[in-house]
Design a protein around this nucleic acid. Structure first.
Lengths: 118, 118
DNA sequence: TGAATATATGAATAACTGTTCATATATTCA
DNA sequence: TGAATATATGAACAGTTATTCATATATTCA
């Protein structure tokens, strides 16, 4: 798709093109939510947790052991993951089992992995 | 130094699992790279830039105008996007045109958008 | 050449984030 | 009951980050 090249000179703030972009851009709120979602993927501890849960549901203690980290650190991160609806949990006695919430997670991680391996 | 493994009742049943997970997990380096990639998606300014470039290539000045931000702020962010190979650029005289680097970006943003709209 | 323009970048700062530590809550079972 | 266990959470601290400001670099053109 070819496009006419616009020169950067004073007063292009109101060019048609810039106006179009401003109008077709998702709302500030959605863009913020989107950034917030990816923010959850932006920490290697949280990514590790997701990889672990990709295999099967697991309790907090086992996640911590698998990743060689403290229960507290994992619990804090699970909180973020849950808030962003990337994981869900179920309680069984004293134990809380976490699992992946939906399929977007696998796709997103997969695409990310493809990108960095290119 | 290896941390002491914390015991929980559930853990007794899953010790073998924990070992398996440790072995099938991607390397620390890859997990770190993956987190770093998503970190780039985790700021709404950078997401806005990607949305703008999704439409067509564009010079720094026009991106700044479209988003109503300073040239400096945009330039700093484009640097991050370029470092992570999410955008590429070409120079034409004084002007530098940026564009999306590959298709993973569209997929990742699309999946993210689907997730938050659910 | 020098003025004008487009972009890049270093430093500073305010805001944010992940982990640890201490402790709270919730559940089981003796 | 109370002890033991699993998880959650508030506060603090160290490290990171996005923007601004000032300025540098690069290019065009008169």
């Amino acid at each position: 798709m070819e496009r006419e090249i616009e020169r950067c000179e004073a007063n292009h703030e109101h060019t048609k093109f810039v106006e179009q972009i401003r109008q077709t851009m998702p709302s500030e709120e959605r863009l913020y939510d989107l950034a917030e979602l990816f923010q959850v993927f932006s920490d290697s501890t949280r990514i590790k947790i997701l990889f672990v849960l990709f295999r099967s549901e697991m309790c907090v203690c086992d996640i911590a052991n698998s990743l060689n980290m403290t229960q507290s650190a994992i619990s804090h991160q699970l909180r973020h993951l849950k808030q962003m609806r990337l994981v869900k949990n179920r309680k069984e006695g004293k134990t809380v089992f976490y699992s992946l919430a939906d399929d977007h997670i696998v796709t997103i991680l997969g695409q990310g992995m493809e990108h960095i391996l290119e």
